[in-house]
């Protein structure tokens, strides 16, 4: 029993790290560009399929891990620049455009890669089980777990120490004042959008061996990311991290004990948070 719980715990945490990648991107994009990117899951899916396609031709998982997020991030930059820039300040319309974009991307992926469910095997070096005494656990989810935590620490460091990080935080807090100090909010927005979508793409590459690819996954992942961000707090990465862990655990253990109600519990949690503390559990009051 204990081993079962431990297994589920690790599974949940690994899933949580995937959610974190997505939620982080979404949260950054919202904080800086003030856009709720409902196409986020589609970028995840794009990353996953691209990873699949390139993995076959490039052969190295690590190369794919590096390249795919860059490509997806580039697409994100183009989207911000050409589709969203002109709608500055009009929130509903921006969201609608991202919805439309999400549908377009998802359908294009379906046309290209087909509707069949594709399960992606983990790369050879990370496949197979790990033996910890009598406890056996597959290596790959552990890798995802470790990667997620490292990324959290890395991004935190980046935001806290680098000039760009400080600029991101300043533009999130007060874009007008930031611009009087010589910062170009538009440029920071653009770059952040790129980084956010790149993170989604990274999530896709990393997540593919864990979650089978199928049409409709984009919508599911967008929804999950949204829920995490709402629960954890918009615009704060600690919120994305701990929110992801909370949702991952509720989902994982929910599936184990109350399989029919797992989804429900998560939605109920989100609704509760929105009702009681709309800025999220760790969020700050938005202006």
């Amino acid at each position: 029993m204990l081993l079962l719980l431990l297994t589920q715990l690790l599974n949940s945490l690994a899933f949580a790290m995937l959610l974190f990648l997505l939620a982080l991107g979404l949260s950054l994009i919202f904080g800086v560009a003030r856009v709720v990117n409902l196409a986020h899951g589609a970028f995840y899916l794009l990353g996953a399929y691209l990873g699949l396609a390139l993995g076959a031709s490039l052969g190295s998982f690590w190369l794919v891990l590096l390249l795919v997020p860059l490509l997806v991030g580039l697409l994100g930059v183009l989207v911000e620049r050409f589709l969203l820039r002109g709608l500055h300040g009009r929130e509903l319309e921006q969201v609608l455009v991202t919805i439309g974009l999400g549908f377009i991307l998802a359908d294009l992926l379906r046309a290209f890669f087909g509707a069949a469910i594709r399960s992606v095997p983990p790369p050879a070096e990370l496949a197979g089980p790990l033996f910890l005494g009598s406890f056996i656990y597959p290596k790959y989810p552990l890798f995802v777990l470790v990667m997620g935590v490292l990324l959290f620490l890395l991004v935190r460091l980046l935001l806290a120490r680098t000039p760009f990080g400080v600029q991101v935080r300043a533009v999130t807090a007060d874009p007008g004042m930031a611009s009087t100090l010589g910062i170009q909010p538009a440029r920071v927005s653009l770059l952040t959008f790129g980084i956010g979508t790149a993170l989604a793409g990274l999530g896709g590459v990393v997540g593919a061996p864990m979650i089978a690819l199928a049409p409709g996954l984009d919508a599911q992942m967008t929804l999950f990311a949204l829920i995490v961000v709402v629960i954890g707090g918009l615009g704060r990465i600690e919120g994305a991290f701990w929110g992801a862990i909370l949702v991952g655990l509720v989902d994982g253990f929910g599936r184990l004990f109350l399989p029919q109600l797992a989804m429900f519990l998560i939605f109920a949690l989100m609704a509760l948070v929105l009702a009681l503390k709309p800025e999220g559990l760790l969020g700050r009051r938005l202006a």
Partner: peptide, 20 residues
């Protein structure tokens, strides 16, 4: 075509951008 989502999505994007 089978690509209903592509259709809805494009229509949505074009409407918002050009026929607000």
């Amino acid at each position: 075509t089978d690509l209903w989502g592509l259709f809805v999505g494009s229509l949505l994007v074009l409407t918002v951008l050009f026929a607000r």
